[in-house]
Nucleic acid binder design. Structure first.
Lengths: 189, 189
DNA sequence: ACAGGTCTTGCAACTTGTTGCATAGGTGTT
DNA sequence: AACACCTATGCAACAAGTTGCAAGACCTGT
């Protein structure tokens, strides 16, 4: 599993409570590792009982107390080791790819093409969001600290992946448009 | 869920048994949707009892009987509808991104860079495999049937995604190399 | 004939992730 | 004080995905 390690990274960036972590995993961190608050609370509890984290109850202004977790020396050690290990190759799951591959079994190819066009917009919007975050958070990429340059670079990865999808969805659309217009005679086989 | 729909697509391409589907999901189909044989057998059983599939026991030469599933009219209908719906946005989970973002908490950045280099090779190899499949299976992309052009295009998506990672991992490496050599004075902040 | 292999199907137990709901402290409004 | 409303933490039940194992069919070699 790797949620625990994602939590270690986030907590090393700054100690936090479950709800604060939930917010992070809905925003920036969540762009490459998502989790629900339930998962997070449960995992934090387990990590603490395993000695990876320490916690401290902190009273707040105008809000209920929070339980703020920090990475213990054991947790730091575990993270340091994990970081250099090869990632366990993710199970690669693209619902979009399944749909596009199955497009010829829809009643109407136009419906799938419309979905693909909408999907292209989704990716375009997401890429734009990343780019805006890059500009706002890292206006001078040459002068970043060690930890910040990695946050910067991972955002760059996000942009590239999104652009990969956009490029593909354009290829998908133009290929099918060309076929629909020019090559109606070849439709059967 | 979407394994059921992935199975519908695969079974519409050609009726098959659980073990045959397991093989497909380890190869081509598995490049964008993976599943274990257990998942597949259990899901097929449920789909049949829900009337999405029909099955037939087929004796084989030199092997135990197999239970070959085919998509029922109900299954076809369900698939046709599903194909045009927007994909439920996948939970985006990149263990590599987590590791790269946390790189500054490793004992030694060199270890993470080595891991990243190895990872680049993994993606390069995978991209090459896709390209080979493209060349072998679709030597003449202009003359493909409706179902085949989609198989072709989805492979193209695979190539693009892999190339996106390669491009990023190159950027990652050169950025850190530049920092390590030139800018040792800025290391602290 | 029987030991050893492999193929197909499948059960059981476990882990991971999701959804719905609950409790308790705090605020603000009436 | 009573009420609605918000935040933070958490329980419980469920769904999805993984791992380990095994039974039965069939082959091959001895």
């Amino acid at each position: 599993m790797a949620l625990e390690h994602a939590l270690l990274v986030s907590l090393r960036e700054r100690a936090a409570s479950g709800s604060e972590l939930t917010r992070r995993f809905d925003k920036s961190f969540g762009y490459f590792w998502s989790a629900t608050h339930q998962q997070i609370y449960r995992t934090l509890a387990r990590m603490e009982s395993d000695g990876w984290l320490t916690s401290e109850v902190v009273p707040q202004q105008g809000k209920p107390d929070t339980k703020v977790y920090a990475v213990s020396p054991l947790g730091e050690k575990i993270l340091a080791v994990w970081l250099t290990e090869a990632p366990t190759d993710a199970p690669l799951r693209s619902e979009l790819a399944v749909k596009l591959r199955g497009a010829s079994y829809a009643e109407d190819r136009a419906g799938v093409l419309a979905m693909a066009r909408a999907q292209r917009e989704v990716h375009r919007t997401r890429a734009a969001a990343y780019e805006q975050m890059l500009q706002r958070q890292f206006p001078h990429p040459e002068e970043l600290s060690d930890a910040d340059v990695d946050r910067y670079l991972v955002l760059r990865a996000g942009v590239r992946v999104e652009e990969g999808w956009i490029g593909f969805l354009d290829e998908y659309r133009t290929t099918h448009e060309r076929r629909a217009s020019g090559a109606t005679d070849k439709e059967a086989r």
